[in-house]
Simulated assay, not measured.
Amino acid sequence: MNPTLWRRLLAEFAGTAMLVTAVVGSGIMATRLSDDIGLQLLENSVATAFALGALILTFGPVSGAHFNPVVSAADWFLGRRTGTGLPARDLGGYVVAQTAGAIAGAVLADLMFKLPAVDFSDKHRTGSDLWLGEVVATAGLLLLIFALARSGRAAVAPAAVGAYIGAAYWFTSSTSFANPAVTIGRAFTDTFAGIAPSSVPGFIVAQIAGLAVGVGLLLALYPSVGSAAGDVIVHRSEPSQLEEHH
């Protein structure tokens, strides 16, 4: 039996909030502990990678631990024909919960370090190079998550996804936001991990493009990937269970 919708939405809100708290908080701590920008990025990326893996383990059994609108959208799209993915009526709730959680997480991190609760970032991140980095980061993330589910290796997702995001901090020009909700949340903090509100739309458009690329590659490489979409919610459920409990 799958958890009720309100429990799944609470898990997505709390999990995304804690993820952004980890991203922003570790960025603040890094700038206070180190003067070298490379070392600061290393500290930020390692903390984020470990936190993400732990959060997936914590909230995955409840909501699937998407923490990301593009993951939820891909899960709905890929599973819509087989009835195994996130139902369309739940998709909007997931996106709202994730976005609200991301904003709350940024505020919480600021408060923990005695900074203004809301201080919009002035760190402009714009340009075709950064947008391309977001396309690559987002598409790669989706390929990893759904390939693991399709091949029956979802159990290693916490470690694999954490490792991918930690690595993508370094091999993408954008430092791998790969998440519209997290991008919005990071606009609320004028710290190391922040992004200027004016730069947010470009990142989100690039992430949606990455969603399209990732889904296209998944369908080409794993034509039956939709049958595994249910494993990215909580666990594999029979269609009758999905209808009853979603």
Rank of each mutant, 00 (worst) to 15 (best):
M1S: 06
N2Q: 06
W6C: 03
W6N: 08
L10K: 02
L10R: 04
E12I: 13
A17Q: 02
A17I: 03
A17T: 04
V24T: 00
G25V: 00
S26G: 01
T31K: 08
S34G: 00
L39W: 11
L41Q: 08
L42F: 14
V46G: 01
T48F: 05
A49K: 02
F50G: 02
A54L: 12
A54D: 03
L55H: 06
I56E: 07
G60C: 08
P61Y: 09
V62R: 01
V62S: 04
S63F: 06
G64W: 06
N68K: 10
N68L: 12
N68T: 10
A73K: 02
A73P: 06
G79C: 05
T82S: 15
T84R: 10
G85M: 09
A88D: 01
A88G: 02
R89W: 09
D90F: 00
D90S: 13
L91D: 07
L91H: 07
L91N: 04
G92E: 04
G93N: 10
G93F: 09
F113W: 11
L115E: 10
V118P: 02
F120C: 02
D122S: 09
T126S: 12
W131R: 05
L141P: 03
I145N: 09
A147L: 10
L148Y: 12
S151H: 12
R153L: 09
A154I: 08
P158I: 02
V161Y: 07
V161C: 07
F171M: 09
T172V: 10
S174I: 07
T175W: 15
F177N: 11
N179L: 15
P180D: 14
A181E: 07
V182M: 14
V182A: 13
F188M: 15
T189G: 14
D190E: 12
T191Y: 08
T191N: 14
G194R: 04
P201N: 09
F203A: 12
Q207L: 07
L211N: 02
A212P: 01
A212C: 11
A212F: 13
V215W: 05
V215F: 07
V215R: 01
G216E: 03
L217Y: 11
A220K: 13
P223D: 12
A228P: 12
G230R: 12
V232T: 12
V232K: 07
V232F: 10
R236P: 04
E244V: 00
